[in-house]
């Protein structure tokens, strides 16, 4: 794994995260200047460029929705995962795991749709549905990660005189971090996609040009939205890849 420091110019050019980021920024900022291109590709369209909202605004709102829901899910999910792996919460572990496993069979789009009858239209149901859905992989992987810490390591940590908090923060969480991160990554990637669909429940996200384009038979809108969402997802995924390498750097030494 290449560290972030000490990269040669060649590394920069072949780095998925860097390339993706450049592409994403170029797409978001430069989409308006592609208007002539879309006009040429779709001569039949009166409006070849989605201009009802700026792509910068939509991207930021999209990221805020994904970020907000993911952050909430990480806080609640790791908290719950930690709680059920402590002696006082162990009784609830089975139930939580069952809920997390069963819940993940529910398609995210259905969960999003169900939030509307319960909460109503707008960004709130999207935020709540995304948070709830993101909780499941985070919880599942937090429990799996914490349970995956070798018993001998915990025995040694306690035997050397670490208190419960020291064992948790210095040993258990750092060792579980890669597995927890994999859950967060799953959650965030799902949320990037679900947030796009959330345009159908009244949240303004990068899905909006796609939905508007689909409903109005404007393929140019669809492509503009789809390109940016896809780039965003790939960049975030590459970012997680980098983060995962950093978290497990000790195992590659």
């Amino acid at each position: 794994m290449t560290g972030m420091a000490g990269m040669s110019p060649r590394d920069w050019l072949t780095d998925r995260l860097m390339l993706g980021m450049v592409a994403l920024v170029a797409l978001v900022l430069g989409m308006p200047s592609l208007k002539p291109l879309f006009a040429a590709l779709y001569p039949g369209l009166d409006r070849p460029l989605y201009e009802a909202d700026s792509f910068v605004r939509l991207t930021l709102d999209h990221m805020a929705l994904v970020g907000g829901s993911s952050l909430a899910a990480i806080l609640i999910g790791t908290g719950a995962g930690i709680a059920v792996t402590r002696p006082w919460g162990r009784e609830f572990r089975g139930l939580l795991e069952t809920v997390a496993t069963m819940g993940q069979t529910f398609p995210p789009v259905a969960v999003l749709a169900l939030a509307v009858p319960v909460i109503g239209f707008g960004p709130e149901p999207a935020l709540i549905a995304l948070t709830l859905y993101a909780l499941l992989p985070v919880v599942e992987n937090t429990v799996a990660g914490l349970e995956g810490v070798a018993p001998a390591v915990l025995d040694a940590a306690r035997g050397l005189g670490m208190g419960p908090a020291e064992v948790l923060f210095r040993v258990e969480l750092p060792l579980a971090a890669p597995v927890i991160l994999a859950g967060v990554r799953t959650a965030v990637i799902i949320n990037v996609g679900t947030a796009a669909i959330a345009s159908t429940v009244g949240a303004k996200t990068l899905g909006l040009p796609i939905i508007v384009g689909l409903n109005g038979s404007n393929q140019a809108y669809v492509i503009q939205g789809a390109l940016i969402v896809a780039a965003l997802a790939v960049v975030i995924d590459a970012g997680f890849d980098r983060l995962a390498g950093w978290l497990t750097r000790w195992s590659n030494a």
Partner: peptide
């Protein structure tokens, strides 16, 4: 797998 479905449909 990373690309959101709605984007892949669109693309």
């Amino acid at each position: 797998q990373t690309v959101p479905s709605i984007a892949l449909f669109g693309l």
